[in-house]
């Protein structure tokens, strides 16, 4: 039996989790205040993932940049590839929240979507 301490990052509560492992397999999770905590602990010890947020340039909009995010979480190891993949994107205005900016980023099956409305300038 092995114990690992994690901090749940699902929400700002940041519950301190104690995970009991046996032969690398999660046997029990304690300290979570909601089911998402247990799911996080299991995932974090097997396949850690994160939501990535960044910005892309906008052409002809009221703002110079539009914020974007991965529509779901992606493997932690692909964060930098993901940021690199969107770094040269320039969107024409208008940009709408939820609009797909880049489909299937880095083969993760997850889309990059806009998180900001940017109307056309003028």
């Amino acid at each position: 039996m092995e114990e690992k301490n994690l901090i749940c990052i699902n929400c700002p509560l940041g519950c301190p989790l104690t995970v009991t492992l046996e032969n690398g397999e999660v046997k029990a999770v304690a300290g979570n205040t909601c089911p998402r905590g247990e799911a996080y602990a299991r995932k974090e010890l097997t396949n850690p993932t994160r939501i990535v947020t960044s910005t892309v340039k906008v052409r002809g909009g009221t703002l110079a940049m539009a914020s974007v995010k991965t529509a779901g979480d992606i493997p932690k190891g692909k964060i930098f590839d993901c940021v690199k993949a969107i770094q040269d994107i320039e969107l024409p205005a208008p940009v709408a929240i939820g609009q797909v900016v880049l489909a299937d980023v880095c083969g993760t099956g997850v889309d990059i979507v806009a998180t900001k409305n940017v109307p056309v300038k003028g």
Partner: peptide, 25 residues
Amino acid sequence: LNQCIHNGFGLHTFKEELTGPEYAG
């Protein structure tokens, strides 16, 4: 919120995880 492009907003209010601009939106 417009400059807080990271996620983690709105779990209590909207029961989903939004970025700052989305929450403001």
